[in-house]
Write a protein that binds this DNA or RNA. Structure first.
Lengths: 160, 160
DNA sequence: CTAGACCCTCCCATCGTTGGAGGGTCAAGC
DNA sequence: GCTTGACCCTCCAACGATGGGAGGGTCTAG
């Protein structure tokens, strides 16, 4: 089947399939004489795997590791479980940080009259010396977003 | 004061200050004859405002709106409150989605022996037809990450 | 006068995804 | 045959926020 059909069958956009191939996440698909990529049912399975892992918030770099662990059955589940649990921890850290942000903002908003009075606690709060971001940050030294979990778009599932 | 000093005083990197100016988020700072940007205490206040709003997960595009509302006091708090509450809702949606991801993954991981047995429920789960992403997605049609809240890196506060 | 700290403007990378431009290929209908 | 429209191809650029670095100018203390 062609790339368009594979895309529909796997819920991965044609753009992304080509992108994954270019980045080595997928092996290069064989081509027809005219250059069209050709896919088999197994490839759709692989695409669906990528899509699901992506939906679970795994960064592509990690998605690339998973199947290799899969093939190398000797050290299969232990490694995968470790990776998955680390990922869960990262996701939960992030969720906690989000809750903290939401709480801070909601507090500010609650104090806001919401009318035309010129003083707005929200703006005043944000203007403060330090954002009252609670110590939700357990934190763990990683500088930015924590290596994993970076995309994790909101519940993308229903989008197709 | 120079950009470096302003950066330290506001906890905004020099790179970012220049970036914000280039993107119109900040008015162009006056320059010395030699081209150095010059800042006054008030500017540091503005920078700190941006930093705090950023830490609360506001995308820069929205941060740009806040001060303009601030200046236009006539319609101050009502607008700001609306914006803030919408933001809170978006953040919480995202947090919910993260929890759902974490739960799904944890379930898969829990079922995993974590030893050398060749079958790994995690990989099998991810390979399934559909990711068992719960109906956390109440969802709301927006296609990608939901407009606001996109950066929100994990508890960045302690990083400086 | 020189070293080192600071500043300047560019460009590039990250991460995942989308969009478009510009062009080739295929199948169906006439 | 030939046209049309759907499909495919490869590049190139953009988003959002940030960081890194090159290559160069400026300032200040010794």
């Amino acid at each position: 089947m062609n790339i368009g059909e594979a895309g529909k069958a796997s819920s991965v956009s044609v753009k992304m399939i080509r992108h994954y191939e270019a980045n080595g996440l997928l092996p290069a698909a064989p081509r027809t004489e005219s250059g069209y990529r050709v896919y088999r049912p197994d490839d759709v399975h692989a695409l669906r795997f990528i899509r699901n892992a992506r939906d679970l918030g795994f960064p592509l770099a990690e998605i690339e590791e998973l199947p290799s662990l899969w093939r190398d059955r000797a050290r299969a589940s232990a490694e995968v479980k470790r990776l998955a649990m680390a990922h869960v921890a990262a996701i939960e850290d992030k969720a906690k940080a989000l809750h903290a942000m939401a709480n801070t903002l909601r507090q500010l908003a609650t104090a806001c009259h919401g009318d035309h009075r010129p003083d707005c606690p929200i703006l005043e709060g944000i203007s403060g010396e330090e954002t009252p971001l609670p110590s939700t940050n357990g934190n763990s030294g990683h500088t930015r977003a924590g290596g994993m979990l970076r995309r994790a778009s909101i519940a993308r599932a229903p989008q197709e």
